[in-house]
Design a protein around this nucleic acid. Structure first.
Lengths: 147, 147
DNA sequence: TCAAAGATACATGAATAATGCACTTTATCA
DNA sequence: TGATAAAGTGCATTATTCATGTATCTTTGA
């Protein structure tokens, strides 16, 4: 029971982008390479996450030379529940489908777990990328000195 | 992001035992074999779960001929959060340990996810095995006609 | 003392997540 | 207009974890 690294990477990418956001001047887009060097990750995997974030319209990607990506929304509009639900996949946390478990017709368990899962996400819905950027100055320093 | 079958099996075993509980007469203990036949599961895996439930003192196990196991507590005293936490393992849902993620010192994420996890378990703590046995009659019928 | 039950340890198989590799497409710049 | 740097795409491989299997030991009642 753990979030995938895939999801984790996605959140970190967003944090990275958010931390650099205040540079209104920002002439240079963030690249997959930047992310990999900062966090020490595999380019292939990051590639896929970035692509996914693009499809979710959380970031905007630009191909070609001088390409890269940047946040497509204000950090305050990116809620954590959405990001995690989408990247993680929104399957039930317990498998009760017939004929897997004979008790299913009389079982209360799946409903309880499903409601608990919803509470988890409802809690996450209270937070946005902004909340992850409270220590933005410190984050920017970390990110800029890492590679 | 899904509970393990291991955890699921544990809950089902408890439901099975709870459903048979009202037989005050019950001369015969439930065996691993009973569980396997009812749910169509592998004896080896069930073996381990039963052993685990025994160590948790949720059930009492008896070796030897005519052995088996039964609930060690009243169903109302077995809370779902405890069962799931113990069987599932209580690790954090997101891995942020240094030096895994450079952002850790300035990261708010682990705290948020950890709190969400706690809310999930706090919700589960409102339920006991009794709540899984609301349709006890139906359950007993299912269990008795299955093998 | 035998047989039926759980306990234990180790080995194997299966599923899925993570990563790697090769190649394509697109955009920019010299 | 061609070289280059970026993301996009598909498939292959590796690693990890979960699930299951096999074998043997221990306990206990008949």
């Amino acid at each position: 029971m753990q979030l995938k690294k895939y999801t984790d990477y996605g959140l970190r990418i967003l944090m990275y982008l958010g931390a650099h956001e205040t540079h209104a001047d920002a002439p240079k887009l963030t690249t997959i390479r930047d992310i990999c060097e900062t966090f020490g990750l595999s380019a292939n995997h990051v590639n896929k996450v970035v692509h996914h974030l693009g499809r979710l319209q959380l970031i905007e990607t630009r191909r070609g030379k001088n390409g890269g990506f940047f946040l497509a929304k204000a950090p305050g509009e990116i809620t954590l529940d959405y990001v995690i639900r989408q990247l993680e996949g929104d399957e039930p946390w317990i498998e009760c489908h017939n004929p897997y478990c004979v008790a299913l017709p009389a079982c209360e368990l799946n409903g309880i777990v499903a409601r608990g899962k919803e509470l988890f996400y409802e809690y996450l819905a209270q937070f946005t990328l902004n909340d992850l950027l409270k220590k933005q100055g410190q984050l920017r320093q970390i990110f800029s000195t890492t590679p």
